[in-house]
Design a binder for these strands. Structure first.
Length: 425
DNA sequence: TCTGGGGTCCTAGGACCC
DNA sequence: TCTGGGGTCCTAGGACCC
């Protein structure tokens, strides 16, 4: 029988901030989304103050000021690098690992059952903390879904941060105490529908008839029932190249100017192209969208999108930026105050397997070489050491209006030479 | 004044094919 | 009066995740 462990970092973003700033250990900590829009991470103390996840910052602000909460803009350079370290450490505890998100990983521990699994979890937790400073919780179970539940229990109801739900007795004890909406894969819509069917807890869902759940919902829901019953339907997933690559941002302030939009969309397109090349793929097309703010119902609303298809697949920033600007030009209407735009790359395929058509004239070798040079310069000298002029050059000396706000970002301690932690003795 | 970003999978229905 | 059967592919929309 398989054994899965789910390792989940506790309040990951808040914990990252604390690693480099121990004075935060005694203060509630909150991290804001991109553009300082809303709360996306909270330390336990901030949770206890009743600051809900997703609360807009302008609403959370008075509460935070009253309670001396430390508030940070998102610092993805830091979180991404800390995540890499944590994952590297977790990976030493089993050859079979799936990095599930920036702060979670599954391990398969089938071969480890001769050890005491809880002890093994303890030593993992201790090692990650010692090597990275990040606290984690470990849930162990016979399926991924049960391991998720075990992790929840580990985090909320144990002092040790490790919980093993492999034993059926443990399952019988825990499942009735888990609300159906807290099960992995059951969102708010399904939870509401299940409630009306009289299914309120994980134990209720576990006892439901999988076929009937499939008929009422779909195969995904059926799998959740089976997983709760202990038959593993979900394996560890190998890392797959992305099928879609998106880059979008809300603007720092609402934008009216066509030139600003062209500059913004060029930046997003260039960033998306970098991600595309990083996974050695090419895209068949570019999708651009542009919209006004749904939170301003009093203002005229505009939602537009446009798809551009390449003659042959491309990963060349110049092609992708050109296509994005062309689409933006077609989308733009004067007289609106725009809140957000974005670029999505479509029909992504591995660069190596591109089938050129009989009359193709694209010199891939030459284009790839240029992009390699750009990417390696930026890797060596820092982000945007070299970029396309269409991305804008800050001629006026101050950043353009569309640049997102991040007034409260901490130092990028681990990825910038000039932002190292300084300690005064 | 101020409300994130980036993904995945499944299903139903329509177009189209032989 | 009477109008097949079986398949694939694509898209939009809806659900979910962190």
């Amino acid at each position: 029988m398989p054994v899965f462990a789910l390792i989940d970092c506790n309040n990951f973003y808040a914990s990252c901030e604390r690693v480099f700033n121990p004075s935060l250990n005694t203060r509630p900590v909150v991290v804001l989304s991109n553009n300082d829009g809303c709360v996306i991470a909270r330390s336990n103390e901030a949770r206890a103050l009743g600051i809900p996840m997703g609360m807009p910052w302008f609403q959370a602000r008075p509460l935070c000021q009253r309670h001396n909460v430390a508030v940070f803009s998102s610092n993805y350079a830091l979180y991404g690098d800390m995540s890499r370290r944590v994952m590297e450490c977790i990976g030493m505890f089993s050859p079979d690992m799936e990095v599930y998100s920036i702060d979670e990983a599954f391990l398969q521990l089938d071969g480890f059952t001769h050890r005491h699994l809880t002890d093994y979890g303890q030593s993992l937790k201790k090692t990650v903390y010692q090597w990275t400073g990040i606290p984690v919780s470990v849930g162990i179970g016979p399926t991924k879904t049960l391991a998720k539940i075990a992790n929840r229990v580990a985090k909320k109801r144990t002092n040790t941060g490790v919980f093993d739900i492999t034993d059926p007795a443990a399952q019988n004890a825990v499942l009735p105490t888990i609300e159906v909406g807290d099960i992995w894969g059951i969102g708010s819509r399904w939870a509401a529908r299940l409630q009306t069917m009289g299914i309120r807890t994980a134990a209720d869902l576990c006892q439901a008839d999988p076929c009937q759940i499939r008929q009422s919902f779909n195969v995904v829901a059926e799998r959740i029932v089976l997983e709760l019953q202990g038959s593993a339907c979900l394996d560890l997933e190998p890392v797959q190249p992305r099928k879609n690559i998106m880059c979008s941002r809300s603007f720092g302030t609402l934008v009216t100017s066509r030139n600003d939009l062209l500059e913004a969309v060029a930046c997003f397109a260039a960033r998306a192209a970098e991600k595309l090349r990083h996974q050695h793929s090419r895209a068949g097309g570019v999708h651009v969208f542009l919209k006004t703010s749904r939170f301003r119902p009093d203002e005229p609303q505009y939602h537009g999108s446009q798809t551009f298809t390449f003659d042959g697949p491309s990963s060349d920033s110049r092609d992708i930026v050109r296509a994005a600007r062309k689409s933006m030009t077609a989308l733009y209407r004067p007289g609106f105050r725009y809140q957000k735009c974005g670029v999505m790359l479509l029909d992504i395929a591995p660069a190596a397997s591109i089938q050129p058509d009989l009359f193709h004239t694209i010199d891939y070798a030459r284009k790839d070489h240029l992009m390699d040079v750009i990417d390696s310069l930026n890797a060596r000298l820092g982000k945007n050491a070299i970029f396309l002029a269409a991305q804008g050059t800050y001629k006026s000396g101050k950043p353009p209006e569309w640049i997102m706000r991040c007034d409260r970002r901490s130092q990028r301690y681990t990825t910038r030479w000039n932002e190292f932690l300084r300690v005064r003795c």
